[in-house]
């Protein structure tokens, strides 16, 4: 089976700033990977490149190709013609939720069905009963079904993040890319969101890439860690190798940012409990 995500020598330059430099990365279907690095190390840029929200450098050192499940997202600085096909099975979760705050929670989740339904019906918002049921079930699964009719912006940060996860579920995503999904959340909500993401990945075999700047979360929830520094991948290996000394070796002084911020103890990840048991 084709890789869930394959980046081949991808670079992205902003002016003089090499935000991502010659990065190659392969994520297998169902695999869970934490992407760590200090702020400015290129995590967001990498995730945006992977989803085709930004284009790689045209004349970078490599081909600059991104594929997901064998479908091309971009290559040589050009978006693939059928990038929408690739995007359909990539779910995105952002630090600032990226929901339409004035629309209802349910509508925000229904948006996940757009890629699969008739374009005209989707554009007019004529979701059928089946799609509504799926969306509601996804909300129940992340534990916020009772808020379905509210406007998305009325929810707390952690709840909004779970709406985004429900949207990815409705999308039928086979790969979820989450860019610092817990950076704007309090520790309790952060744990719940991480639990939801990991359980969802486990239950449905969804490949999961989560960027984090708190290393303790990365090591608690993930087996494979990819570490970035100054736009390059500087480590790709098992979480067991990650410790303070190693981070200091990788990052020098900026390692502090990765280790220090979470003064609280990261709670153990929930065992593969049914996510519907999480009640807000």
């Amino acid at each position: 089976m084709a890789a869930a995500l394959q980046l081949d020598r991808v670079s992205k330059t902003y002016g003089q700033m090499r935000a991502v430099e010659n990065v190659s990365l392969t994520i297998q279907p169902g695999e869970r990977v934490a992407l760590i690095g200090a702020s400015g190390s290129g995590k967001s840029t990498l995730i945006r490149l992977a989803s085709g929200l930004i284009l790689a450098d045209r004349n970078g050192s490599g081909s600059g190709a991104v594929h997901s499940f064998g479908i091309k997202v971009q290559e040589g600085g050009k978006l693939a013609r059928d990038v929408r096909t690739a995007r359909r099975h990539i779910g995105l979760v952002f630090q600032q939720f990226a929901l339409s705050g004035r629309l209802s929670v349910l509508t925000n989740v229904l948006v996940g069905a757009l890629g699969r339904m008739n374009a005209l019906r989707g554009t007019l918002g004529l979701f059928n009963a089946d799609e509504r049921r799926t969306a509601y079930a996804a909300l129940a699964e992340v534990g916020i079904a009772q808020h379905a009719a509210k406007r998305a912006r009325e929810l707390s940060g952690g709840q909004q993040q779970r709406v985004a996860i429900a949207r990815a579920l409705v999308q039928g995503a086979k790969l979820v890319l989450a860019d610092e999904p817990i950076a704007s959340l309090d520790p309790k909500s952060a744990k719940r969101v991480m639990d939801t993401l990991v359980t969802m990945s486990r239950d449905y075999g969804i490949a999961l890439v989560v960027s984090l700047h708190q290393v303790d979360y990365a090591t608690a929830y993930f087996d494979r860690i990819v570490a970035m520094n100054a736009g390059r991948i500087v480590f790709d290996g098992p979480a067991s190798q990650i410790n303070a000394a190693f981070l200091t070796e990788l990052y020098g002084a900026s390692a502090e940012e990765l280790i220090l911020p979470s003064q609280f103890v990261v709670p153990a990840p929930a065992e593969a409990a049914a996510p519907s048991q999480t009640v807000s």
Partner: peptide, 28 residues
């Protein structure tokens, strides 16, 4: 721009991005 990217990420069309991402923000 974030909500618009949220729609784009699901594989929505340009018009769907406008309807679900832009219009709710500008309507008031």
């Amino acid at each position: 721009p974030a909500p618009v990217e949220g729609i784009r990420g699901t594989g929505g069309t340009w018009l769907q991005e406008v309807i679900y991402g832009v219009l709710p923000q500008v309507m008031p």
